[in-house]
Each structure stands twice: as C-alpha cells, then as structure tokens.
Design a protein around this nucleic acid. Structure first.
Lengths: 192, 192
DNA sequence: AAAAAGCATTGATTTTGGTCAATGCTTTTA
DNA sequence: TAAAAGCATTGACCAAAATCAATGCTTTTT
C-alpha cells in the first residue's frame, strides 16, 4: 500500500523506515469510481490527493455551462484545490475521476502536523509545488506564445498518456478551445 | 538595507536577530537602470532576485519577433527564470527593468546553503513558490475561461499598480494579444 | 438486445481578434 | 531644441476560431 507515494517521496527526500511508518499513520487511502467526485465546487477542499492509480481532472463550469479543465492528474501526480485547501475558502473547482482511481489522501491537519514535525515532509511539499509551478509555467507560456497547432503538438508530445486515456473533448476544455476546433487541428496535423 | 526583503521574510517565517544577520551574509544588493538586463536568454540564471524597488519583466521573443511577457515584478515580488536557476540549463527568458530598480540577489550556492542550514529559509521558499503557483493558476484560469473584456477587467482590478506603471503594449504582451486589440477592449470597457 | 446518451467529425455561417496602415502625441536622443 | 523613436489609437480588411447544425459511431444504461 502507498507504493507509488513512497517511491515519489523517496525520490525527493529519502526516508528511513521509521519515518515511513510515521508518515503512514497520517495517510488515508480512498478509491473512486469513474465519474465520482473527489471535490465539488462550493465545498471546502479537506485533503490533498496523491494518485496511486487512475486519472482525474480538476475543472470549473462557467455561467454558460462550458467546462474548463484546470488540471489533469495521472499516477504519481497530486491533485487538489490548493487555494481552498490552504485558506479554507469554498472550492472553485470540481475534481472527479476520469477512470476508476486509487488515491492517498493527506488531510489538512495531517499536512500541518507533518510540516511541523518532519522537515523532509516540507522538502517533499516544496519540491512538489515547485514541479507543479514549472509545469504550469510551461503550459502558460505555450498558451500565450505558440500557435494552436504547435500547442497541441507540444502537449501530446509532453503528455502522450493523457492523449491516450482522456477523451478529446476534455483535452479541448483543457486547451481552452471547442471540440470542433481541436478535431480540425488534429486533422491538419495528421495530414502532414 | 534589505528592509522590504526582511519584512516579507518575517511575515512568512519570523526570524531572530541572529538569523537575520546570518542571512544577510548570503545576500547581494544590485541596482538596475531602466532597460538594463538582469538576465538574457541563453545565459544561465545565477540568482533569484527579490525586488526592493522598481518594476521588472520576464519575457521571451519568438521567431517572428513578438515578445511574450511571462511575469511582471514589482516591490516585494521575486523574479527569476526558476527553471534555469534550478537546473543550470540556459535561460529561455529575458529579464529586464521597466523602471530603475533595486534588487536583493540570492545566488544558487547561497540558496542551497540556506536551504540546508536554515529550516525557516525552506519555509520562506515554500511559501513563495506556493504564492507564485496560486497567482499563476488564477491567471491561467482566467485565460482559458473568461472572455477578453473580463480578463482585462480582472487583471486591472487585481494589479492596478501594474496598469499604472507599465506601458500598455507590455500588458498586451502579457495577456497574449496585440496592442491594437487591447486598446479596443479598453475603449469598450470605458464606454460602459 | 434495444434505446439512449456521449462522442468525434464535418460543413456552413458568424464572430472575434489579427494584420496592415496611418495619425497625433509624448518621450528620448542627438 | 530639433529630430527621431516609441506609443496609443483608429480604420479597413483578413484570418482564425466559435457557433449552429447534422451525421455516424461507440459506449452506457435499461
């Protein structure tokens, strides 16, 4: 249990056996069926989720009913509404499972206590957020500077797993375009 | 010296006098004239810069000569090409001063040593990157989900300082549009 | 197994933002 | 202080993506 979680943790901050045992007492496993919510807009995000298995998405739905995907999550990634988690404000995102999933939850109190007790947990947290920041910056840069075709090509080169496992209309919602436009872009790319 | 820097540091992780003295030995002040580079694309980013005074921008220039602004920085903010700083790869951004500026530099070796020696510095770093992550997520969300007018209105409500101090064509480059389009949006907004 | 819902694709049309070009200011530079 | 460069605005035109609509699959649900 928690294999992947500790594999990732040890990459970022190598742990002793006792430390692992200690951390385990703070973790909660959770299974999610496809289409089930982990979090709904308006609720407070009570935990950070590490993905052991499956695929999830964080998204919002605007006034006109369009969904906008903020983040995908696959095995080894972390997903949450971090703003809500940190501030206790109601979440502005929904998070649900695109595939059946197995998660490792870290509750707010567990997070805070681990930060206080275990410097390696702060390192783990710092490196996670740094990685997420750099990934998001890459995404943002490509949005403001690359033409659409390049953007999609870059995305599918960087995240082939997502392209394989996630329906196209969700990728369109992630890229900020309509499914029709994405379909046409794919055709243009494949005909070259 | 370093007033604002320690003010911000103490907000995130309160320091003793000795700790402040220690940290000061790792810091380097730097002044920058308007239009001077702090970093040029292709060079390795050797330091993180905390802005005591002035305004800077991080940006890239694409093949067709268009500039794309990744980040603005004002007093109290941190600016760098973090990816280059952390990996030692050549920077993909330029950073220069929009106004004359006073900076506090933290070199790579200083950063690493402080992380090792002083847990509070890791906390400071973690909270900085977390704040930057949340700010960028807000920006990204508004890009993929809000219509242009709303995006500009949201931006100028959130960062009135930037709107006042930075030329409009740079704000256009930050939002991923042409100066002409931004000018038209502003007119539409003001005529309501 | 049949019905329904979800999905990707394509076409026709409309909307939005980009491009090209010109003008009048203001700020730098010589 | 004169010349030049930089900047914001406006207009006419063009290109790209959104919208609306229809079709044929595939997957889910009953």
């Amino acid at each position: 249990m928690y294999e992947l979680f500790f594999q990732e943790f040890n990459k970022k901050a190598p742990l002793t056996g006792e430390e692992e045992t200690l951390i385990k007492t703070y973790l909660t496993p959770k299974k999610l069926r496809r289409k089930q919510y982990l979090l709904q807009e308006g609720d407070v995000c009570k935990a950070i989720a590490f993905i052991e298995k499956g695929a999830l998405r964080a998204y919002s739905v605007d006034d006109s009913g369009d969904t906008h995907i903020i983040q995908f999550g696959l095995e080894g990634w972390i997903i949450s509404d971090l703003y809500s988690f940190l501030t206790g404000e109601p979440a502005t995102y929904n998070i649900d499972a695109i595939e059946d999933a197995e998660l490792v939850l870290i509750s707010k109190s567990a997070h805070e206590e681990l930060l206080r007790k275990l410097p390696k947990y702060e390192t783990f947290t710092r490196l996670n957020i740094t990685g997420a920041y750099l990934a998001m910056q890459k995404r943002l840069t490509s949005i403001i500077s690359s033409p659409l075709e390049e953007r999609y090509a870059g995305f599918s080169a960087l995240y082939p797993e997502i392209v394989q496992r996630v329906p196209q209309h969700m990728i369109a919602a992630y890229m900020g375009l309509t499914p029709e436009t994405l379909s046409r872009i794919r055709r243009r790319i494949s005909s070259k």
